[in-house]
Design a protein around this nucleic acid. Structure first.
Lengths: 206, 206
DNA sequence: CTCGGTGATAAGCGAACGCTTAGGTAAGCA
DNA sequence: TGCTTACCTAAGCGTTCGCTTATCACCGAG
């Protein structure tokens, strides 16, 4: 991932917050500048256009989400643990970075080429991680997902985390762990995992 | 639901298409007018503001989605059929009305009071339908959802359909039935349903 | 024929938009 | 001391925005 200078970072953070709250089209570069404590022209010192700024926000978010899943995958040694670790990590990433995640997941349509293709590739890479994990589990006999359901199930598993950004408020970070654990339990059921640890004591939930 | 005159309907449809493609903030009332084949001023003959127009689109969509679920619920006589009918109907509604559904699900944040409260109430009513269905299934012994997981599971079930609008294109309506059936199978697993019909032959899937 | 209602438009208001340009400051280096 | 680099700002351009107003056309009813 590209490194950003402190000045670029400041504008990027301000943009992420503004895009999250108002959407790409409802956000003005003047608003971003005010949030960054800079003049409107300063935005263009670092980014060539408003859409370029969105691309930087989107790419940073996708890369971070992908890394969280890759790191989780690499901690596990069996298909069950691999999948559940990734679901848990993905859910936590989306909840802990809800504002950035909302931009990442909801503003794809505002991107133009070639930025759009770059982000689409990141999304496919992320999806493929889940597909691979399901196939590994099927092969080991741990999971029970029909071949023609693998892609759709992978997509549904990703949606468990992604759709949270529509409503989850960073004010309720105390609920994040509980939601992540619920998603893990739901994921185990969705793939028909035989390898289910003993029931945990109820942590949190709404 | 309120009836709309043909002229109001025309502007409403144009607004739904524009909001779906560009988001509320990225859509201009001039764009809506062009899509409706009218002048910019004509929009204001029927709707008092751009946000009022969004509210009308959003309310119409939420009411239609809610009705689809209510109709599905009322065709069923046991908890399993009730839940699976609702998941199937909700999935189909979101796929068959993907443009409207995208506005409905993603532009809530652009609404202002008291419109926002009206829509929030519709959303709660919709969620409660799923919560009730899970509780009925638990009570009958058909489902196996821990008490503290009911609300979270209901939300996850709704997300199966809702998150589809982020990417689903109306160009692929031929895949709708397959996706709805997959969501039904996933929902059965998520609630731990013991009442599972014999496996169907594979219909469609990606 | 007149009036009222419905629906529509051309033209425009005041404000804001994305972005550019000319000029400035501070720090580091030779 | 002078130059380079990084970062910044005030001011402004041309365009677009949400919305309003004055006026018009058509139709149905009395």
């Amino acid at each position: 991932m590209q490194d950003y200078t402190p000045a670029q970072q400041r504008v990027l953070d301000a943009a992420a917050a503004a895009f999250s709250e108002h959407g790409f089209g409802g956000t003005s570069t003047r608003d971003i500048a005010v949030r960054a404590g800079r003049s409107p022209a300063a935005v263009y010192v670092h980014y060539s256009s408003k859409e370029d700024l969105l691309f930087a926000v989107s790419r940073r978010g996708h890369e971070a989400a992908l890394r969280a899943m890759l790191d989780a995958r690499d901690t596990a040694t069996c298909p069950h643990d691999r999948l559940t670790a990734m679901v848990h990590a993905s859910t936590l990433w989306h909840l802990e970075n809800a504002l950035l995640a909302r931009v990442v997941q909801h503003e794809f349509g505002a991107l133009t080429e070639p930025h759009r293709s770059t982000i689409a590739a990141l999304r496919r890479e992320t999806s493929q991680l889940v597909v691979d994990a399901i196939e590994d589990g099927n092969a080991s006999g741990d999971f029970d997902v029909a071949d023609h359901d693998v892609t759709g199930t992978a997509r549904a598993l990703l949606s468990l985390a992604i759709d949270l950004v529509r409503w989850f408020s960073p004010d309720h970070l105390d609920r994040a762990e509980g939601i992540a654990n619920l998603n893990v339990r739901l994921a185990e059921r969705m793939v028909g995992s035989r390898h289910r640890p003993p029931p945990r004591s109820p942590s949190t939930g709404r």
